[in-house]
Amino acid sequence: MQRRLTTWLLLAPAGVWFAVMLVLPLCFVLVFSFGMRAPAGGYVPAFTFEQYANLPARGTAFLNTLTLAPLGTLLSLVIAYPLAYFLAMRADPKWRTTLLILVIVPFWTSILIRSYAWIFILGGQGLPAIIEWLGFGPVRLINTPFAVLTGIVYGYLPLMVLPVYVSLERLDKRLLEASADLGAPPLRSFLQVTLPLSLPGVATGCMLVFILLMGEFLIPAMLGGGKVFFIGNALVDLFLQSRNWAFGAAVAVTLVVIMLVTVSLYMWLMRRMGGQRDDMALM
């Protein structure tokens, strides 16, 4: 009895936080999404599916998010895996911590400032100028999907590297000896042992990056220059500019549903991939 009381008391702050800051607002958003826009902006209570029917009006934002977020996740993975592999399996253990810190260092500066840096690098005076000087004709990089993708991969790479690194680092290296002992050359050992056993880390990294990308609005706003819109940008616009709260709520609910489906898929995959509970802890 005593212990249960303690448990409840310890859980209370988090519980209240979640109820007030997450569940309650979500309920509001859900209710709003079935309402109407007041003529002067804001919300008028109603029960209509009009807002959901109107979703195609923001189709570009959904399309951009649903292509660039998975693409950005995939690109991050392709770059992060070899890096994490090197750190965990090849790097001199003496240097490992230093190298890991170097991976995290970009986080010490605000993403706002780092995105500004990219504006200059990809802007007219940056890379395009060099490319043109080399004689490859005029190119435009800033305010393109390419610029947004670059910013995304740059910004979220550490989030991909770390979970993959952890799963590779925890891999029992004797398994690779066992694989070699049983006749598998290095590449086959990688494909049959290292890769499958690092999948939980890969899934976790992809999940983290993908979820954050789905809600991203800063990088598209800065590097996409209003031309490459994400759902996040649409939400900012709907709630703060055009004050169409009901429609904004419908967009937000759709976004939440997409994320829920993705997370469920992830959980299901994790459970299928062995069912070892401790891998879930990576989440």
Partner: peptide, 29 residues
Amino acid sequence: PAYKRPVNMVFQHYALFPHLTVADNIGYG
């Protein structure tokens, strides 16, 4: 290299592949 030698080892802590079934472990070689 080890993978080309016609010898096999029983490792001290077994080093069984956790992502494979018993049968797949045995059939690995």
